[in-house]
Amino acid sequence: MRAALYWAPELDDPLHRLGSEWLGRDAETGATVRQPAVPGLDLAALTDDPRGYGLHATLKPPFRLAAPFPAMLDEAAALAAGTAPFDLPPLELVSLGGFLALRESAPCPALQGLADACVATLDAYRAPPTEAEIARRRPERLDAAGRYNLHRWGYPQVFGAWRFHVTLTRRLTPEQDAAIRPALLAHLGDVPARPRRVTSLCIFTQAAPGAPFLIGERLPLGG
């Protein structure tokens, strides 16, 4: 089993429905969802990677548990309860190294603080990565800070290297990007840019290697 700490839209946020439709799966229920048609492209194939993880933005990346899940859940609930809800800046569609994703349109110190707290506070519950897991991160391609983060925290992009992003495609060629971007913008409309408040911290779980991630818990922020 693996767990991860993610941000995900609230169920009454239209972004939950639209993003789940785009990816073809609802991470809250696990149900398969009909995807919109994109002429000339196999949308199912171009969204297969993010579909498995569910609609989310990573706060603490997936990790194998070094302690019982209930103990980790209690610690995460305490972290959430001690964190004040905050406004998320409007989201916008960008390309990140060939992946289309939603990113915040302005810096958000509260969001960075929550991600940092998730990484550090829950680290005692993370089992160290195996040699194979480290190798998959291609440490030879990382700078010194990335290699340190990988070995110390299990992931290269944490703290100052962390970037909020809601991944919506796999890596695209320029031609695929040009074809799919208008369809994605039309599907989402103005929903990403609408005001929204971060009021919960989500625990996603993966039952076994290769299994899809599901939202196991929505922990309310209460500070």
Rank of each mutant, 00 (worst) to 15 (best):
A186K: 09
L185D: 07
T199W: 00
R181F: 05
L188A: 05
P174E: 08
A178Y: 14
Q176W: 13
P195L: 10
L201I: 03
R171Q: 11
T199M: 01
P182Q: 14
R196T: 00
S200A: 14
A178G: 12
L201P: 02
A179R: 15
T205A: 14
A186T: 13
I180Y: 01
P209M: 05
C202Y: 04
A186W: 03
I203A: 03
L185K: 12
R181Y: 08
S200G: 08
V198M: 05
V198H: 02
D190V: 14
P209H: 02
L172F: 05
R196N: 01
D177F: 07
T199V: 08
R171K: 14
P195A: 07
L172I: 05
P192S: 06
T173W: 13
R171H: 12
G210K: 14
R170Y: 01
D190H: 12
I203W: 06
A179G: 01
L184Y: 09
D177A: 15
R196P: 01
L188R: 10
L172T: 07
A178N: 10
R197V: 04
P209F: 05
A179V: 03
P209I: 02
P174R: 12
F204V: 00
G210D: 11
A193Q: 15
F204S: 04
P195H: 04
V191A: 14
L201K: 06
L184M: 15
R197N: 00
Q206S: 09
P182S: 04
A208T: 11
D190E: 15
A207P: 13
T199L: 03
L201Y: 00
L201T: 01
A179Y: 02
L185N: 07
T205K: 08
L172G: 06
R197Y: 04
L172V: 11
P182R: 09
F204K: 02
L201H: 00
A178V: 12
R197T: 10
R196L: 01
L185G: 05
C202K: 03
